[in-house]
Design a protein around this nucleic acid. Sequence first.
RNA 1: GGGCCCCUAGCUCAAUUGGCAGAGCAGCGGGCUUUUAACCCGUUGGUUGUGGGUUCGAGUCCCACGGGGCCCA
Length: 496
Amino acid sequence: MDETSDLAAHPLTAARLEKLEALRAAGVDPYPPRFERTHLAAELHTTFGDLEAGAETDVEASVAGRIMLKRSFGKLVFATVQDASGRIQLFCDARRLDPEDFDRFSELDVGDWVGATGRVITTKKGELSVAVERFALLAKALRPLPEKWHGLTDTELRSRRRYLDLIMNEESRRVATTRVRIVSELRRQFTDRGYLEVETPVLQTQAGGALARPFVTHHHALDLDMYLRIATELHLKRLVVGGLERVFEIGRVFRNEGIDATHNPEFTMLESYEALADYLDIMTMVEEIFAAVAEVATGSTVIHYQGREIDLTPPYRRIRHLDAVREAVGADVSYDMTMDDLRALARRHGVEPEQAWGHGKIFDELFEELVADGLWEPTFVMDHPKEISPLARVHRDDPHVTERFELFIAGSEYANAFSELNDPIDQRRRFEAQARAKAAGDDEAHPIDLDYIRALEYGLPPTGGLGIGVDRLVMLLTDRSHIREVLLFPTLRPED
RNA sequence: GGGCCCCUAGCUCAAUUGGCAGAGCAGCGGGCUUUUAACCCGUUGGUUGUGGGUUCGAGUCCCACGGGGCCCA
């Protein structure tokens, strides 16, 4: 079976294969090793943007890019090439090249990579161009690009062949580059605050630090089942025990759960831990960071998302978790209620309580059902139930809740933070409670991590910890409603 | 997991009540020295996602499967 047979079998690609062979036969390398570029397209537009129509400079420029459009006349060819910075027109006039070279230029296809050298001019119609004197094919494209006007719109194809999406859709390139700037700014924010960026294991023998189903894999040499991390939390806090007092990590985490508009099995999480800080300190930091990142991504702290405005200028509203539930159910719920009364109340509000749920879990289900979606402007929901926060410190004034907050914007959670639980004896009890939940059928319960408890037994100072879902943040700041739009390669079923 | 919807040429899309599978772009051939999605003339290109069924006849109706989307849980 010839590896080019599928190309040869289709007339569209067969024609290009024939051109490729003809070039080789004529001694032209269709895939040369390098090209000396002197100018990016955008540089030419910046420098010569004011040139009047019909001008001819004596500046020689070498540009390189992919041919996106081609307009061919008898003795004249216009080609629009696209490089990483933008687009520039190549003006190929038969009078400026050897006839042989002009014919070769005419033979170029849309999609080909080309490098061209010549004077910077404007055409009679005023289009800034490079008047080609020499050129080189840099890479022959054997497959045609999508349609030049409508481009590539099919969401599945755009995800599966991201390279085509990036070639064809400027908006996709913009989202990709904005994501990079957001991550850079996040990194800068933490390093400027004296945090060390560290790396912790992806492969773990226990998947802790969050409540989620992990991916399982196997290490052959150790004959050991291992998990892909679902969080970086427990390792980062070990580092704080070790005296790295401010650490953060921006890394991929993996959760073996469904795929939808806001969930991908692998996603990017930022976690940070700061010794001697509590959750209120972290809250202030989160406001500052979100405002700074919004400014970098959009040029303003007032952003537009899904047709509505959101003001990310600090300070953000703060509301206690239980107060939010009280407001939503219109009754004075509390931890003193009987389980029967609370379950009845939950059912009245569309929440069917499971047997294992205590007060805190029911309150949180009510919160998710009744409150979360309505939180449009940035809102810190704070002091979550102890039952659903196994790694957070008990609140200094209320034994039922923890010193924790989540930042909600546009109905979704963007940050989750606590005053970290540093009491090893309390931590052990919380893990044991999770073990009981697991035994009762909760497969998202947190496993007991004895080495982590041992680390705590050496003394974790008071610590403020934070997690930020980076993909969600990028969605917010690029106004995308689907996570696949901010992931270059979202998880997909295989094509065949 | 449940419901609804989509899949037609490389791409973007048509196809009446179940009645000859089409257009534009791309490609190929020709023309053209200032285009901007160039234009003009001609022309190639199809297992209608896959497999089955109903029917004289299926892109269209039915079933299963695959891929995707939206909503709900």
